[in-house]
């Protein structure tokens, strides 16, 4: 079913972020996948052959690998094989942290690789004998304190984002624990994972918001609206999701929201999603945002695909919800017309 689709879609690169004025790519992944590894192998072979005569050729091998990585990273960032489109303010914050760490680690990486390659190229020490140096207190102190300082900075700078992600007030975070912050949500739903689908149950907006969402999550009501594998909300909505599972651990992964949370058997885990962008274009077409499962949950783990629809406003969302409600009551009536089925006999003896 997908075989034909794949090749065409791959070269089309849906979701590509074109950067104006960017130079053309050096190579296209889809076309180079097969010959590039062979070419790289060839280069390694050449480096080896040259090294038989000139041992400094090993520096070229290390340098070449470094260049390849740099190229890949830049190429991927340019061609859209990078962080998925961001759909919320918190996702922007996460991306900011990601790029901060990326910058710092890149500097360190280039520094260490530069030194390593230099040591391969350096002239032989005078007399062919290196000095018998056992260490240097000052140097040790420098390369102990500088990384420590940077790492502590990284540790501190991420704290507010983590608190916000977990739906908490940053200041009161250490005291607050896992209880959801008291700010009211616009939309409440449970997401129940099971092998292998996501079952959503929306709290009916006609009803007043329950005081205790944990209690609501445990007690389904007749007015609730059900959906399978579809997460709907509207732009700007604060969505409170109560994550549950009936069988094994699943992980609810929304790449565009930088959101991921395991569902733990026997527990209901509250989570907050603040949607800031819609994936419905002005002409009504929809950019596909997907739900994936990120924790191995059996053979069909890869099939727990769902989609996210963030409507442009609450009205559009309510339209969808009402349609869903109508079809639900239709199904209920037709089901009521049938004789009640006997509870199924258990398969295990």
């Amino acid at each position: 079913m997908i075989t034909e689709g794949t090749s065409t879609k791959v070269s089309g690169l849906p979701g590509t972020v074109e950067i104006a004025g960017a130079p053309p790519y050096l190579f296209e992944w889809s076309e180079s996948a097969h010959w590039l590894p062979l070419a790289i192998t060839g280069l390694a072979l050449i480096a080896w052959i040259v090294s038989l005569r000139f041992k400094r050729a090993w520096a070229a091998l290390f340098g070449f690998t470094l260049a390849l990585m740099a190229l890949w990273t830049l190429q991927s960032a340019r061609s859209g094989l990078w962080l998925p489109e961001s759909a919320s303010l918190i996702a922007d914050e996460v991306d900011g942290l990601f790029h901060l760490v990326m910058a710092l680690t890149s500097i360190f990486y280039l520094l260490t690789q530069g030194v390593l390659i230099w040591t391969l190229l350096q002239p032989a020490p005078p007399g062919g004998r290196a000095a018998r140096v056992h260490g240097n207190h000052l140097l040790e102190l420098v390369w102990f304190t500088v990384p420590t300082g940077l790492l502590v900075y990284i540790a501190l700078v991420q704290l507010p984002t983590w608190a916000k992600m977990k739906g908490q007030v940053p200041g009161a975070y250490l005291a607050a624990g896992y209880q959801p912050a008291s700010d009211p949500a616009d939309l409440l739903l449970t997401v129940t994972g099971r092998q292998w689908e996501w079952r959503m149950r929306y709290h009916s907006p006609d009803q007043p918001m329950p005081v205790n969402p944990l209690f609501w999550a445990a007690t389904p009501a007749a007015e609730d609206i059900h959906a399978v594998n579809e997460l709907h909300a509207w732009q700007g909505a604060k969505v409170r999701m109560m994550l549950r599972t009936t069988d094994v651990i699943h992980s609810f992964f929304l790449p565009q929201f930088r959101f991921k949370q395991d569902m733990l058997p026997g527990k209901t885990i509250p989570a907050l999603l603040h949607t800031d962008r819609s994936n419905i274009e002005a002409d009504g077409t929809e950019r596909v945002w997907e739900i994936a499962c990120a924790e191995l949950c059996g053979g069909n783990h890869y099939r727990m695909r769902g989609k996210v629809v963030i409507h442009r406003d609450k009205k559009e969302f309510m339209d969808w919800l009402n349609r869903q409600k109508a079809s639900q009551s239709e199904r209920k009536e037709s089901a009521a017309a049938l004789p009640t089925p006997k509870p199924e006999a258990r398969e295990n003896q």
Binding site: I2, G5, P14, G15, S76, W82, P84, F98, F253, H301
Partner: peptide, 19 residues
């Protein structure tokens, strides 16, 4: 970085993984 989950038997099922 693109969000490709591990342990997927067939990633082409997902549009965001096809590229």
């Amino acid at each position: 970085i693109g969000g490709h989950p591990r342990r997927y038997y067939d990633p082409t099922l997902y549009e965001f993984l096809q590229p």
